[in-house]
Computed example of a mutant assay.
Amino acid sequence: MTSRPAAGGGRWVSVGPERLGRWIDGFADRHGPLEAVASDEVVRIEAADGAVAECRVPFPPLTAGGGGPLARLTTHVRRERRVGVLLVRLGGHAAGIFQGDELVSSKVGSRQVHGRSAAGGWSQRRFARRREKQVDQAHEAAAEVALRILGPHTDGLEAVVLGGDRRAVDALRADRRLAPVFALETEPFLTVPDPRLAVLTATPAQFRAVRIRVVDPA
């Protein structure tokens, strides 16, 4: 479980699906009996002492069914899903398909992109043109990997999670071939280092977790 301050007050915690039931029980132990209401995207828990926990539903909408909001939420987050992941940073990229938390198909690659030059004049312009070409090649390589790994399987994916650097990911949106991939985009956007296989393999800990905004009683 991770924790960080939340904009507008409170703090964010991230809780894995297997731990969510225990986390809710602990919240009740600390703050008293709970009442919960649910929408498609948020389950709001209010405790007897005024503490609030707003649980963002991963892969919304919240699954319909019997039981109260908390039972529906715990069932929803534990369901095994087939999810695509696309990570792009300048010079590195990774795409994979997960069944639950198991990586079943993947491709990782990299392209060299030089940093910016401090030189001036003609040399700087030449370096800038060279770097721009390298950036374009890196984006094209990332797009090809996304098409190879995710493109043929979009009909069978429940969602696609993106991550890396937002500008690098956004640079791929203009590629019409990737429209079916981006049509499945869901939160959260994953902040990750250079996309290597170990980084890709570890992403379910982020995209399967429940993000909870906790506001303590005044």
Rank of each mutant, 00 (worst) to 15 (best):
M1E: 02
M1P: 03
T2A: 09
S3Q: 14
G8I: 02
G9P: 00
G9H: 01
W12I: 10
V13W: 03
S14C: 13
G16M: 12
E18L: 08
L20K: 02
R22K: 13
G26P: 09
F27S: 07
R30P: 11
R30E: 15
L34P: 09
V37L: 12
A38W: 02
S39D: 08
D40W: 00
I45P: 06
I45M: 11
E46H: 04
A47T: 04
A48E: 12
G50F: 00
A51L: 09
C55K: 06
C55N: 09
F59T: 01
P61L: 11
G66N: 08
G68V: 06
P69T: 11
P69Q: 12
L70N: 02
V83H: 06
V83F: 04
G84P: 11
V85E: 02
L86Y: 06
L87D: 05
V88G: 05
R89L: 12
G96H: 08
G96A: 07
I97W: 03
Q99H: 13
Q99I: 09
D101Y: 01
D101G: 13
D101A: 15
L103Y: 04
Q112I: 12
H114V: 08
R116F: 10
Q124A: 15
Q124Y: 14
R126H: 14
A128Y: 01
R129W: 11
R130P: 01
R131H: 07
D136M: 07
A138Y: 03
A138R: 02
E140V: 09
A143F: 02
L147V: 06
R148A: 15
L150H: 04
G151Q: 03
G151L: 00
P152Y: 01
G163V: 05
G164K: 07
D165W: 03
A168L: 04
A168R: 00
V169S: 07
D170K: 12
A171D: 01
R173A: 12
A174P: 00
R177W: 04
L178P: 08
L178N: 03
L184M: 13
E185L: 06
E187G: 12
F189K: 08
T191L: 12
T191F: 10
V192K: 08
P195I: 04
R196P: 01
R196M: 09
L197E: 14
A202D: 15
T203F: 10
P204V: 02
P204L: 03
A205M: 10
R208K: 03
A209M: 09
A209L: 06
V210T: 15
V210W: 09
R211D: 10
I212P: 13
V214Y: 11
P217R: 05
A218Q: 11
